[in-house]
């Protein structure tokens, strides 16, 4: 899977905004995938953007008063309400523009949050904002647990991961449930553009952000973000782990435009064994071969379910 970032230095400057909207010097851990993902997202969004941020790592590491890493207008209010604050921002931008009280140009509202702030405690606010059809993007940066508070399991934590509230032990495999399929739930909200992404595929991610930005209405991106601290992985494997998540079929990269599913990163005919992905992470270190097999079976099943949608889904516009 070498091809995708080959000659990156050659063509990236032409495709990617050179401006940094999420500046260095913030306080993220070494090898933080989420901070990288936020930086890439901003490049895809450009200057005319307002960010609303849920409480979490990205808020904490970027906004220690009196410093800020944000060169985009940014607001944080609380943990569960990024999408609701976004709804208010979007509505205000719309009405003030209509009334001639602010500049007459398109400013996009982008709400962001971690997996806890999105698939758990912020779920209702996202559901409301997407259902009401606000012209905004929601980006969930999913590092698969409440990392900011110390690696507690969330609804996005995969099976078998050892977390501080679902620890592995003699009587427990760790987290007992499979990951909540948030992109699917967003498709069910009739959101016209839904995509998965990962910082290890920067161009793919930026393209999706740009596409989401062009939608007049709600859009949702679910971005897997490697967290070396919470995943108990070496910080220099951040990019590699993101790629393995995709290559093993654990986190395929796709987009859903008006209900039509499409893989955006081509998958090998034969997926890599999921073990390749799991063995680099301390959170899975306790898994027995049987449990590893169980994990593999679920990944295979989920992948088949997705491929079925890729094959048979049709755009709502063509129905």
């Amino acid at each position: 899977m070498k091809g995708i970032v080959e000659n990156f230095d050659l063509y990236a400057p032409k495709l990617v905004d050179k401006e940094e909207y999420f500046s260095s010097g913030h306080r993220a851990c070494q090898g933080c995938g989420e901070a990288l993902a936020v930086r890439l997202m901003c490049k895809g969004l450009g200057k005319d953007t307002v960010i609303t941020n849920a409480t979490g790592c990205m808020e904490v590491i970027s906004s220690l008063y009196p410093t800020t890493a944000w060169k985009l207008p940014w607001i944080h209010v609380a943990f569960p309400n990024s999408a609701a604050v976004g709804a208010g921002v979007e509505s205000a931008l719309k009405v003030l523009r209509r009334k001639g009280k602010i500049a007459d140009r398109d400013v996009k509202t982008v709400s962001i949050g971690g997996d806890g702030g999105s698939v758990d405690i912020g779920f209702q606010a996202i559901s409301g904002s997407m259902e009401r059809g606000h012209n905004m993007i929601y980006v969930c940066f999913d590092n698969e647990a409440y990392m900011n508070t110390g690696i507690q399991r969330s609804g996005a934590t995969p099976f078998g991961a050892s977390t501080t509230t679902a620890p592995a032990g003699a009587a427990s495999v760790g987290n007992k449930t499979w990951k909540k399929n948030m992109p699917e739930i967003m498709v069910a909200h009739n959101v016209p553009y839904v995509a998965t992404a990962c910082h290890s595929y920067p161009i793919d991610f930026i393209n999706k952000v740009k596409k989401a930005r062009s939608v007049k209405g709600p859009a949702y991106i679910h971005c897997l973000a490697v967290c070396p601290t919470g995943w108990r992985s070496s910080s220099d494997t951040c990019i590699k782990l993101g790629r393995l998540a995709v290559e093993t079929g654990f986190f395929p990269l796709y987009e859903v435009e008006n209900g039509k599913y499409r893989l955006t990163i081509e998958m090998p005919k034969k997926l890599r064994p999921v073990e390749d992905y799991l063995k680099l992470q301390g959170r899975f270190r306790h898994l027995t071969p049987d449990q590893m097999k169980q994990f593999q079976e679920r990944v295979t099943l989920e992948y088949k379910k997705l491929m079925n949608k890729v094959k048979y889904s049709k755009s709502w516009l063509e129905m």
């Binding site: 607001i75 208010g88 509505s91 205000a92 009405v95 209702q124 559901s127 904002s129």
Partner: peptide, 28 residues
Amino acid sequence: LDCEYLPVESEHSALSACAGASAVGARV
């Protein structure tokens, strides 16, 4: 009345949306 009226899904979101709108400069 020319106004964005948000029939939100909870009071939590009502006040959150008000916060976002007020931060943009709207009368809320």
